[in-house]
Design a protein around this nucleic acid. Structure first.
Lengths: 222, 222
DNA sequence: GTCTATAGTCGGATAGAC
DNA sequence: GTCTATCCGACTATAGAC
């Protein structure tokens, strides 16, 4: 942390604070204090806070995406299954932890925050840079789940992303709720291990095939 | 909106902005501009921004919780099933829409934000006021899913909450992604209808019963 | 109860010395 | 590349007239 150069120190401090507090709620002053660098150095190295946000995420995407693509290609070349596609996300995610102890968690949380904060500029950045991989993900899931409409798949994939992102984002709060009572160290590994079968079940669920027909199903039986 | 008194106008404007932008990222100036009231009136009526946040949520909890409790009691008196418990959340949620067109969505999003923002003071407020109902929820799910350990249930319930909260929070972004291409008006009703079978599948999933045994499952088969 | 005015703090960004 | 000093805008909160 202290031996790295200024630019890296800023990136590392920003990553942690962005993940824990959000982009808007983290000040450049907090970041530079944590990184033990001068306030003005952020604008010198990155130009603006907005550019810093993109740089923090880009640092992880450059590692995550190529490995994900490689894993997805492997899936495409063998028997395509929902479970196999989900598992393809695990190696690239944990590869990030080589950069920092909690980088996989921070990355996940930042992806989630990209949906609700930053007025979409982070999302557009990702789509521009890695749109091909995103398209491949959709294509593979479509093949694994041929009965699902595009709409239904769209919703379920975002439910799945939400499951992971919410728990990662709230790990501090969840730790307080669970207390020492039962809380087997909410490591990223534990969470991922728990969420994989959960989302697999939701994605492959045979129920809910009533596209555009939302009348009285709510309140009735499933 | 305009005929209401100052206090209500503030609550309504605050609700919308808190849900859309988060608590920390919404200023009293934005709220009072939107509500067409004077800046100082917030502190006159609520004392502080923190108290305003609690007041906004309390307004919905006072409606939501009694109805939820009533629905849960009905479930407890009949055949307890996971599906029935999940459905118990639907009537109280939609009851909120009598206060405002998007109140159900706003309420859901604010509950989610309570986990990651506000340093837990919102969560503690809810636990203090409605801890009995929360305990009843856990108890009913435990009975409906007797094979799940407390830990496993804990994770799955939060995955489920995350699915709903994330999609509700990101509905603006999701609308942009889906475009006119396919996007059947992301009404709260649509989302709830989609998420109920999704979380039911995840909660009742028979796989993943390997508590405290996270060795090589990741990367292996499901 | 509602207003204006302002105190006091913190934010992002930059100029200019070194 | 790194620092100090500072601009300027936005924020919460409050004092005090009406």
């Amino acid at each position: 942390m202290s031996k790295a150069n200024t630019k890296t120190k800023i990136l590392e401090a920003a990553e942690q604070l962005f993940a824990e507090q959000g982009f808007n709620n983290t000040s450049l002053r907090q970041i530079t204090n944590e990184a033990n660098v001068n306030l003005a150095s952020v604008n010198y190295h990155f130009g603006s806070k907005k550019s810093l946000i993109q740089a923090v995420l880009a640092r992880y995407l450059e590692i995550f995406m190529p490995i994900l693509k490689h894993e997805l290609d492997k899936v495409a070349d063998s028997q395509i299954s929902t479970e196999a596609i989900i598992q393809a996300f695990v190696p690239p995610l944990f590869e990030l932890n080589k950069l920092g102890k909690q980088s996989a968690k921070h990355f996940t949380v930042m992806i989630g925050r990209g949906y609700s904060e930053t007025q979409g500029h982070l999302r557009k950045f990702i789509v521009n840079e890695y749109g091909d991989v995103l398209a491949q993900i959709i294509e593979l899931f479509s093949q694994a789940l041929p009965k699902l409409t595009k709409q239904e798949l769209f919703w379920r994939l975002h439910f799945s992303l939400g499951s992971l992102v919410f728990v990662m984002s709230s790990s501090g709060a969840l730790e307080e709720i669970a207390m020492s009572d039962f809380f087997e160290q909410a490591s990223t590994k534990t969470i991922v291990q728990k969420v994989v079968p959960y989302v697999a079940a939701g994605l492959t669920n045979q129920q809910g095939y009533t596209p555009n027909q939302f009348t009285d199903q709510i309140g009735g039986s499933l």
